[in-house]
């Protein structure tokens, strides 16, 4: 008898919950069953009229029913809460709509080339060295064995600061003039004065020439200098390192050759010529790619390195030029105009 009533109560609770769609409804309905005046509570109060011997069975079925009802309410509550959470997400999305916002960052092509070059040299133990863009005549020329009246030191080609100019954080040898460095070779000098061989550095940076801007000239441009000083470094090592570098940069099927040339700070000096099978209009033609040579004993002497014990090689290449070759870019001004339609073609970090 009691059991039947209990079963009805349980079924009633299940039915009543079905129409519940809000938490407040749920609270109301819960009170009608489990509250102090709720039907299940009332039913439990009837235990007094139950014969003593039946009381254990009554209690057991009461607890079972109560447990069932509580479970119904609990799972309903969880369900309601889930619904609320989902509702807070708003309307379902249309996955085909575009991203918001739409901007994405990117790398400048010159930085990309610079990083490629550095990562190739890092694999063979070169680390990055930097020095100031403001330089002095001694570091940019004298220390690099470039005589006083060498054409490269001409006011025609080099941007000088007035003689009254003072730079607090760029050291001078004597009272020589300040200028904007014309090549990254000055980093060789600053590094060799600070650190002692063995040394393997790669020095990317901005350089300046007194040039009118056109498709192939720029008042500022970027170079990467390299310097390798150790015991018993030879011309063959120079060739070996640069061949490795150019293979990594332009692919394994290239040909290279050293062509005698002249720089005041290397002896012997060479231009490196490169032949690439697949490089657009320049395919299979010798192209001049970089200058290099064995560090002149004079230069080592000027920075206090014993040239009988240490030998080394240095090289330099233009980052704009390499980037233009790699990507078939025909005008150096693109790099400094920063048009999105140009930059976006090269802006991925890989």
């Amino acid at each position: 008898m009691e059991n039947q009533n209990l079963q009805v109560l349980v079924a009633d609770a299940e039915t009543a919950l079905k129409s519940v769609s809000t938490k407040s409804q749920w609270e109301q309905i819960k009170a009608t069953f489990l509250g102090p005046n709720g039907s299940l509570t009332q039913f439990a109060k009837g235990i007094g009229s139950v014969p003593k011997e039946e009381r254990p069975a009554f209690g057991k079925s009461l607890n079972q029913a109560k447990g069932k009802v509580e479970t119904f309410f609990k799972s309903k509550l969880t369900h309601l809460e889930d619904l609320e959470d989902i509702k807070s997400l708003g309307e379902c999305i249309d996955p085909t709509l575009p991203a918001s916002p739409t901007f994405s960052g990117g790398l400048h092509p010159l930085t990309k080339t610079k990083r490629r070059i550095i990562s190739i040299f890092r694999k063979i133990g070169f680390t990055v060295a930097e020095a100031s863009e403001v330089e002095t005549e001694w570091f940019c020329f004298d220390a690099l064995n470039t005589p006083d009246d060498h054409p490269a030191r001409d006011e025609q080609d080099t941007l000088f600061f007035p003689s009254s100019s003072e730079w607090a954080n760029v050291s001078r040898k004597k009272k020589e003039s300040y200028l904007l460095r014309t090549h990254t070779s000055s980093v060789q000098i600053r590094t060799l004065l600070k650190e002692k061989p063995p040394l393997r550095i790669i020095a990317p940076g901005r350089c300046f020439r007194r040039d009118t801007v056109d498709a192939t000239h720029s008042a500022n441009f970027h170079q990467t200098e390299g310097l390798f000083v150790d015991q018993n470094v030879t011309v063959k090592d120079l060739k070996g390192v640069l061949d490795y570098f150019l293979r990594e940069l332009f692919g394994g099927k290239i040909e290279t050759r050293l062509r005698p040339s002249f720089f005041p700070f290397t002896e012997p000096s060479f231009e490196v010529d490169l032949k690439v099978p697949d490089l657009g209009k320049l395919s299979n033609k010798w192209i001049e790619i970089m200058g290099c040579g064995m560090v002149d004993p004079e230069v080592l002497g000027l920075v206090g390195v014993d040239s009988d014990e240490w030998t080394g090689f240095a090289f330099g290449l233009g980052i704009e030029r390499v980037t233009m070759l790699l990507h078939g870019i025909d005008d150096i001004r693109h790099f400094y105009q920063n048009d999105q339609r140009f930059l976006s073609q090269f802006s991925s970090q890989v």
């Binding site: 790398l107 400048h108 901005r206 300046f208 500022n220 400094y336 802006s347 970090q349």
Partner: peptide
């Protein structure tokens, strides 16, 4: 450079002079 690219900025290169 990496951080600013990650923040959605495009790197550029402008004249020093």
């Amino acid at each position: 450079v990496d951080n600013l690219i990650g923040q959605g900025y495009q790197e550029t290169c402008n004249y020093s002079l």
